[in-house]
Design a protein around this nucleic acid. Sequence first.
DNA 1: CCAATAGTCAACCATTTGGATGAATATAAT
DNA 2: ATTATATTCATCCAAATGGTTGACTATTGG
Lengths: 116, 116
Amino acid sequence: MGEYVNDDDLSRILKAVGDTTRRHILTLLVQEGAMRVTALAAHFDMSLNAVSKHIKVLEEAGLVARKTLGREHFIAAELGRLSLTESWFGKLKSIWELRLAALDNLLVSKDEQNAE
Amino acid sequence: MGEYVNDDDLSRILKAVGDTTRRHILTLLVQEGAMRVTALAAHFDMSLNAVSKHIKVLEEAGLVARKTLGREHFIAAELGRLSLTESWFGKLKSIWELRLAALDNLLVSKDEQNAE
DNA sequence: CCAATAGTCAACCATTTGGATGAATATAAT
DNA sequence: ATTATATTCATCCAAATGGTTGACTATTGG
């Protein structure tokens, strides 16, 4: 609750999710559950290594968790971190609405002046 | 309503907002309302030109609108586009929950089998 | 034991990005 | 008319990004 939104974390998350391939990976993970690196890579027209790097970026952003069983790495989505971005968006919107409300009050008091 | 989420748009928006300076610009705009380029730039320890470029990126992502009055450009936040990202996050979460529900059903029917 | 499989790491490359600076353009002020 | 202000455009640069390939490590199966 009330988690502190670190700016660097936020940047890392948004950058991670700003790439099509990585969003696609996340989508696959939420619909299929945990997947191995090779299984994920099979969905993309690029090398295994490239996909592996994308996974690393997602992992560093905390959007994905890795469980290693023998030689196999199981990757699972961690949607929790997305709430950080949502809370930032929410903050923006609330500031926005606060300002609009303040403007409204200003207009109302002008009206009252005029009504005298 | 039900706006079609274009993948490239989404990438552009998320990349735009993945930069600290640009997030800061958006924050300033929502709290102050429309601002001139120079006024925005005054808040940052970088050249006017750099800020101008950041504004351009935000503009191309549709997160900001520009109204030109004479030589002055007034920049205003356009929070509407942020809903695109929210709807993507929402989609992810709903897929996620669908899958969990499906797993649940699976377990329940196994239970029923065992109960025979 | 040996070969195959699952992954990462390292080096390399082209492109993009975030910044700087200098010039150009358009408007406003004197 | 000239100068000052507001802003973008163009060029340049270093660093980051997204991709490739080749080598390396670790685990598993025959």
